[in-house]
């Protein structure tokens, strides 16, 4: 949708850092890879509108199911280190990010994002590798901002400009898009929209069953291993539970060792033996270390952007004899 350059020469690419800094700098891709300490982090990348099609009436945005997410190992350099190269002035308070993409129509606001300086932390990196290779071109080649734990609207692709400001910048894609109601339930109704909104930012706790998929035929009395992934905004997954009785009772699934870190997919598995033939509904529910858990799908409340859906996932399999 935006205008994306179809050719980027890595030998000439650089990130420009200016604004409230001691000395504006341009850092080439080569310098980024050579002059800074490389760091790696495994993190989920998820659209704020993942599973948006579950909301009714239709909220604005792409109507996708739960596939708008992934998890990868990112390698790059700390944003903090890059900013230090330019040196932040005392009055620095916001960091603006802009990539090489441009809106198709010049009057449309560009996709510019900003982060409050107080939210800067060591895990935020500028990545030049994904899973051990250069970033795939349309995933933001040659460098992309990685904000583990935050939805992907913050993960600016083809990052080319960083501008430090002393006041909160006015930006369409910060002030009007990617926001949820600023109330306890983060909810509203089409007839009664919340007067105040806040940025979507940190991902809520979520889990999805990857196997079996709905419609799969399984054999009665034979072991069935349910598998899936769980994640949150970086607090870490404490447990994943499975229910086969519509959510009345729950049994704990086995989690992987968590060695990929708190921002990564935590995979789970649960073995069951379907006792009866017919349709079997399997549900998965994750809880994070803060005790936050997922609501039943029918209890998820609406918001106009269709953001942050995390209803309990369920699959229906056919048990045959």
């Amino acid at each position: 949708m935006p205008m994306i350059p179809t050719y980027i020469n890595p030998n000439y690419f650089s990130i420009k850092i200016d604004g409230e800094v001691e000395k504006p700098v341009k850092i080439s891709l080569d310098s980024l890879m050579r002059d800074f300490k490389p760091v790696e982090i495994t993190s989920v990348l998820q659209c704020g509108g993942n599973s948006r099609s579950a909301f009714h009436p239709t909220p604005g945005g792409i109507q996708w199911g739960p596939g708008a997410m992934g998890c990868a190992k990112w390698k790059g350099v700390r944003l903090k280190d890059v900013l230090a190269k330019a040196g932040l002035k005392k009055n620095a308070s916001w960091i603006k990010f802009h990539g090489l993409e441009k809106p198709v129509y010049t009057k449309t606001d560009g996709f510019v994002r900003a982060l409050e300086l107080s939210k800067l932390h060591d895990k935020i990196i500028i990545a030049y590798e994904m899973n051990g290779e250069a970033l795939p071109y349309l995933n933001g080649y040659p460098v992309r901002l990685i904000l583990p734990g935050f939805y992907s609207d913050s993960w600016v692709k083809m990052l080319s400009n960083i501008t430090v400001t002393s006041v909160k910048p006015k930006l369409h894609f910060m002030d009007h898009a990617y926001r949820v109601p600023d109330n306890d339930c983060e909810c509203e109704t089409p007839d009664n929209l919340a007067p105040k909104t806040k940025p979507i930012e940190e991902m809520n706790v979520n889990s999805l069953i990857g196997y079996p998929t709905s419609g799969t035929k399984v054999k009665q009395g034979t072991e069935l291993i349910v598998r899936g992934v769980a994640f949150d905004g970086g607090h870490g997954i404490a447990k994943v539970e499975i229910s086969t009785d519509g959510g009345s009772s729950w049994q704990e699934a086995v989690l992987d060792d968590g060695s990929q870190g708190p921002y990564a997919y935590r995979s789970f598995r649960y073995t069951l033996k379907p006792a009866r033939t017919g349709t079997l509904t399997i549900m998965a529910r994750a809880t994070n270390t803060k005790g936050e858990t997922q609501p039943f799908a029918q209890d998820v409340k609406w918001n106009r952007g269709g953001y942050k859906y995390n209803g309990i996932d369920e699959v229906n399999v056919e048990v045959v004899s």
Binding site: G67, G70, E133, P136, G210
Partner: peptide, 18 residues
């Protein structure tokens, strides 16, 4: 829906470069 979630949403990927 389910299986695709394990891969990045990089279906538009054109070329990955080493």
């Amino acid at each position: 829906k389910k299986v695709t979630m394990l891969a990045l949403t990089a279906t538009m990927l054109v070329t990955s470069l080493n």
